[in-house]
Simulated assay, not measured.
Amino acid sequence: MPVSPRRIGIVVTDAYADEDPDYDTPVILDALRARGAEAERVVWHDAAIDLGGFDLLVLRSPWDYPDRLPEFLAWLDRAERASRVVNAPATVRWNLDKHYLADLEHAGVRVVPTRYATTMDAATAAIAEVAGAEVRAESRGDGRVVVKPVVSAGARDTGLFEASDPRARDLAARIVERGGVAMVQPEVAELSAGHEKALYAIDGIFTHAIAKGALLETGGGLRGGVYQENPEPVPATDAERAFAGEVLAAVASVTGEVPLYARIDTVDSAAHGLCVLEVELVEPALNLHVAPEATAAVVDAILRA
């Protein structure tokens, strides 16, 4: 017997940190079922689940994937063979590695300056170069840098440091010594002041904007000691909406598709202008619990898919 043409799997994991729950999935499941769809959670690493029994798999909150990346990539391969997956696995693979920022920059998008390092010598040079550029641009002190791996989520292995702080190099060493690539970016003063803004688009159309405040404490830790976002709906300017459109056009030029869902993290800074911090196309929280007006657009897009 053929499966329902609307059997939809919402891809999740099996456990979440108390301070970072998955608020979106219950909202999406209820809304899909209200529209007559057969929708259920799919734990991505549960080998007993028949992925071929779903007509669509929607990546939503497999938030433990950075700790089990080879397993997640293998799951993507299986899921792609068994069903349709959104966002598309090719786009997800591209977006998993933050080298994609260089692709966006080459496509004409303003991106916070980023250097990549695969050795400690390269990381040390990148820290000095980025910090020196920041001092020249901001006319102040020692300069601060952000160090993080190219594959990460939830601020894992991410730190904000004075450039002279040996902990910046220690973090870079941990990243490169396990075979990773370290990213080095300047501190953006407006970001540290809590002015990051996430712009959301569903099927290429802007839906809402969220501010979540600053997360990093100078010296390598998280403010409050844990990763905890405090999402608040905020208005988006015409310039920000237009910028989101430019970013999505660049994504489409690289990947060949407009993603079903996208979160574009931005900051409007004196040093760099309105620029991209990150474009999240794998599993961004949509924050539908504080922006319920976006739920209909999400469900419509899923049903069209």
Results as ranks from 00 to 15, higher is better:
Pro259Asp: 05
Val112Tyr: 01
Gly220Phe: 10
Arg78Gln: 13
Ile127Ser: 03
Val42Trp: 08
Thr118Trp: 08
Ile28Thr: 11
Gly108Met: 08
Arg68Cys: 04
Thr118Phe: 04
Lys98Asp: 00
Ala123Pro: 03
Leu216Thr: 02
Gly141Lys: 00
Val92Arg: 01
Asp203Gly: 14
Asn230Val: 15
Asp203Arg: 14
Glu162Pro: 01
Gln185Asp: 00
Gly204Asn: 07
Glu283Gly: 01
Ala182Asn: 10
Asp203Ser: 15
Arg140Glu: 00
Ala285Pro: 03
Ala198Pro: 05
Pro235Asp: 10
Ala82Gly: 08
Ser4Leu: 12
Gly245Ser: 02
Glu80His: 12
Val298Asp: 12
Glu283Pro: 02
Ala155His: 10
Ala291Ser: 14
Ala133Gln: 11
Ser192Arg: 08
Ala168Tyr: 11
Ala262Val: 06
Ala123Tyr: 10
Phe161Ser: 07
Glu71Thr: 10
Ala17His: 12
Leu29Arg: 14
Pro2Asp: 12
Val184His: 13
Arg81Phe: 11
Ala48Ser: 15
Gly213Phe: 05
Glu38Trp: 12
Pro26Ala: 14
Ala34Lys: 14
Asp24Thr: 09
Pro66Cys: 01
Val176Tyr: 05
Leu248Phe: 09
Phe72Val: 07
Thr13Leu: 13
Arg35Trp: 13
Val112Cys: 00
Leu73Cys: 13
Ala31Phe: 15
Ala34Asp: 15
Phe243Ile: 05
Glu190Tyr: 01
Thr124Glu: 15
Ala201Phe: 07
Leu69Gln: 13
Glu257Phe: 07
Ala297His: 12
Asp77Ala: 15
Val251Lys: 07
Ala90Trp: 08
Val247Glu: 04
His99Lys: 08
Ala249Leu: 11
Gly221Glu: 00
Glu232Ser: 14
Arg223Pro: 03
Leu286Gly: 01
Glu283Trp: 03
Phe72Ile: 05
Asp24Cys: 06
Gly180Asn: 03
Ile264Lys: 05
Glu40Asn: 06
Lys148Thr: 01
Val145Tyr: 02
Arg156Ser: 03
Arg41Val: 11
Ala201Lys: 04
Pro2Tyr: 05
Val282Pro: 07
Ala296His: 07
